[in-house]
Design a protein around this nucleic acid. Structure first.
Lengths: 154, 154
DNA sequence: ACCAATCCTACAAAACAAGTAGGAATACTG
DNA sequence: CAGTATTCCTACTTGTTTTGTAGGATTGGT
């Protein structure tokens, strides 16, 4: 149904991370994070575990424990969050764009896939959690948001 | 495993379309298309049926029948091909980026999703089958391909 | 009539996504 | 030291999607 899609996992992870950014450096429990963003609690726990393993978040166990960002919200990109829970940003048929090879007429196709990945990276790796939390996105990204037809379905 | 991925369907569709672009306007059977690109024949038939319904390709039935591009290879974008087989280019949790809404800290997140989609569109909708077939990609896209770290995994 | 092709329907196996369930380990608080 | 709120770990479920395959009906040129 979709050519490229951000999964529920990815969406939840970013929302949780942005939420943590907005209260940084307070420690917040998975439960209140789930309540605040309207996410399924147990599923979010699994997502937060990935974020911890990926070094995005640190956790505190025991009563009054919870999660907080491992670094400053201005130092963590949305791309880093997504990679922590869903792996590499962009792929083709289960492979990295630079790994696919074709011969014949489609020999130049990898260039296109590389370009798509670069375009995605230029957005997701350049936007920080702090920027999303405050709504102050970089000029390059704002330009994309405001560009002709950006809000139109196709 | 992947944040955003081009499916096997999508990959096959683009390869078939580029292949047809390189021999345009000859009519080519699904069988020789499959042989030429190394694709599973019956699966490719289903993909070509989608391309036909999407107006990308026209078919000729009967012996010596086959498929050819419905328009000039320079008039068909890769984005059009992908949309024909896999639906909208970019989504979030099964919805279009402009349809997702959040409240609280993530209120500005839709802007980011819109920007990602716009970035993807700027590549896929601006590159034609003719350009992929000849390897002469637009300057904007070539710049992405050659940009710092574009070929590096992350 | 023959034959090579598209076209259509149905099925199947595997992988993946999204979540649930239950409880063990941990650490703060009275 | 008991209670309690939390993370953490393993396993399971359930439904959907993806990636095909199988078989044959239909078409149309020679």
């Amino acid at each position: 149904m979709w050519t490229m899609q951000v999964s529920a996992r990815g969406d939840y992870a970013v929302r949780a991370a942005v939420s943590l950014a907005s209260t940084h450096p307070t420690t917040v429990s998975a439960q209140s994070l789930a309540d605040g963003e309207g996410l399924p609690h147990k599923f979010l726990e699994a997502v937060l575990a990935d974020l911890r393993r990926g070094g995005v978040v640190t956790s505190v166990r025991g009563a009054d424990g919870g999660y907080r960002l491992a670094r400053d919200p201005g130092e963590i990109s949305v791309g880093a969050v997504l990679r922590a829970v869903d792996g590499p940003l962009a792929g083709v048929r289960g492979q990295r764009p630079e790994e696919v090879t074709y011969d014949g007429a489609s020999a130049h196709l990898p260039d296109l896939w590389i370009a798509v990945r670069a375009a995605v990276r230029n957005v997701l790796d350049e936007v920080t959690l702090a920027q999303v939390a405050t709504g102050r996105l970089p000029a390059r990204v704002r330009r994309l948001v405001g560009s002709e037809g950006a809000w139109e379905p196709r």
